[in-house]
Amino acid sequence: METALAILIGLFFTVAIYLLLSRSLIRMLLGVAILGNAVNLLIFTIGRVTREVPPIVPNGQYQPLEPIANPLPQALILTAIVIGFSLFAFLLVLTYRAYQELNADNTDTMRVAEPEDSPRPPLSY
C-alpha cells in the first residue's frame, strides 16, 4: 500500500509542478491545491499506512484494544490542511484582484514591479 501511495504521491507532485509552471495564474492555483494534497498524502504515508482502524479509543476503555492508525501524522495533516487552505484562499483572491487591476492572467504580461523595459542605470557620478 505504501509503495502504491508513494507512486501516487509522485504523480501528484508531478502534476502540481507541471501546473505551477504554466504561465496561467488559474492553472498555477490548481497546482497549489494539488501540491497541498500531495504534501498531505506524503505526511500520511510517511507515518506508515497499514489499513488500521481510526485512532479513537472505544468508549469505556483506557487504551485501544487493537492496533490503530498513527494519530500524529493525522494531526499534523489537519494543521497543514487548514494552513494550506488559508494560503490557497489568499492566493486565489490575490489572483482575482490581480486580474482586475492588471487585466492579466498570464504571468508573462504581469510586469509592473519589474518592468520589461526598465531603465538602464545612469552612467554618471
Binding site: E2, A6, G10, F13, T14, I17, Y18, L42, I46
Partner: peptide, 21 residues
C-alpha cells in the same frame, strides 16, 4: 521542458519517500 522537470521532481520525491520508508 516543464513536463520533464515536473516528472523529474516527482520521481525524486517518490524515490526519497521510498528510501525513507
Amino acid at each position: 521542458r516543464d513536463g520533464g522537470l515536473a516528472l523529474i521532481c516527482g520521481i525524486g520525491l517518490t524515490t526519497l519517500l521510498l528510501a525513507v520508508l
